[in-house]
Amino acid sequence: MRALVIDDSRTMRSILKRILAEVGFEVVEAGDGQQALEILEQGPLPAICLIDWNMPVMDGYTFVTRVRAVSEWRNITLMMVTTESSHSNIVKALAAGAHEYVIKPFTADAIIEKLELLGLVRDGVPA
């Protein structure tokens, strides 16, 4: 199963990549939303995108709205992983089409728990 990690922080991408790889995901990385859209256009599509909010070029919220505007991408699960912790931003992202919202800092267990809730991981391996 493929995952796309979208974050302008190389360190954060590395942390998320390690967590996802440990539960069996093939991980692709993007440094901003525009680069992530280009990856989606090239395919193959990921099962999930983990998205930071604050990035140059294209932020995570704009990425979510762009993904949700393309019918071929409607089955991609979107999870915000960000420092944006205001209730209004959480509601805004979920209303735009994000499935889950994780606030940084987080633990590996928190990410895996969300993947389990989304039905993408079961007993520590991709479902």
Rank of each mutant, 00 (worst) to 15 (best):
R122I: 08
K114E: 13
Q35R: 12
V28D: 12
L117F: 14
V5K: 09
R122A: 07
I39K: 09
D109S: 14
K17L: 10
H99G: 15
L50V: 13
L94T: 08
K114D: 05
S85A: 02
I48P: 10
V102R: 01
L94Y: 03
L40Y: 06
G119Q: 00
R2F: 03
E29T: 00
R18T: 15
G31P: 10
A110E: 08
Y61M: 12
A47G: 14
D7A: 13
I103M: 03
H99L: 10
L94G: 01
T107N: 07
V121C: 12
D7E: 09
K17V: 07
R66T: 14
C49A: 12
R10E: 12
S14A: 12
I90M: 15
H87T: 14
N54Q: 12
S85Y: 15
I15A: 04
E113G: 12
D52Q: 01
V64T: 05
L45G: 08
R2E: 03
R2Q: 04
V81C: 08
D109G: 15
D52S: 00
E84Q: 06
L120V: 00
K92V: 04
V28W: 14
E29I: 01
G124R: 01
N54E: 14
M58F: 06
L78D: 05
H87A: 10
G97S: 03
A36I: 08
V23T: 01
I51M: 09
D7L: 12
V81L: 14
M79G: 07
R68W: 01
V91K: 03
E26L: 00
V121H: 08
F106W: 05
S71Q: 06
L4E: 15
W53G: 13
A127D: 11
A98G: 10
I76L: 14
T83V: 01
T83P: 03
P105Q: 02
K17N: 08
T62P: 07
E41D: 15
Y101C: 09
A69H: 05
V23R: 01
H87K: 15
R74G: 05
N89L: 03
I6E: 03
T11M: 13
V27S: 13
I90Y: 11
G24R: 07
I15R: 06
T107L: 13
R122S: 07
S86R: 02
V64Y: 01
P56T: 03
Y61I: 05
L40S: 02
